[in-house]
Amino acid sequence: MNSVGDGQLTFQFSAAERVEQILSQYPDKRSATLPLLHLAQEQVGYLTSAAIETVAELVEVHPGEIMDTVSFYTMFYTKPKGRNHIQVCQTLSCSLNGADSLVDHISEKYKIAPGEVSQDGKISLVKVECLGSCDTAPVIRINDSYYEGMTVEKFDKIVESF
C-alpha cells in the first residue's frame, strides 16, 4: 500500500470551468492528467486520495494509474507541505557555490531536516535537483518563485516577510 496520508475524504475542484477548459485542450482525456493534478494541488496544497480519485474519474482511468503518475514526479506531494515550501537546489553549480550551507542554515533556523515540515506548518524544506538557473547559483525556489544568487543573509531577509 502506498501512504497517502490525509483525513480529507472528499474533493471537488473549485474551478469547474478551468477543469473543463483543461480537458478541452487535449485530443484525449488522459493527457489532462498533469494539469489537473497541478490544479488540484494548488487548491489543497497537496494531492489527497480523494483528489487523485477525482482526477482519475475525470480522465477516465483507474486511480492506481493516476497514483502511478503522481508518484513519479517530484513536484506532486501526497502529504501536506509547509505554507512556504523551500526547495534548495543541490546540483553541481549550486553545490559549488554554497548550496550545502544554505540547507544547513535553513535546517538550523527552522529546526527541520530536509524533507520535513515545521511544527507550525509554516515552512517545509526539500533538497531538489537542478532548477535550471545555474548562472545565479545557488538558487532556491519558494513555492512557485525562484530566488537567485542566494546567500544566508539574503535568505533571512526574504523570509522576514513570511
Binding site: S49, P63, G64, M67, D68, F72
Partner: peptide, 27 residues
Amino acid sequence: TREISGTNELFVQARGDNSKISIFEDK
C-alpha cells in the same frame, strides 16, 4: 492488469531505485 484483465489495479510506485509494484489505497 492493464492489457489482459483490463482492471488496472497494479502500478509502479515512485521511480528509479525506489520503484515498486503497488496498489492504490484499498483498491
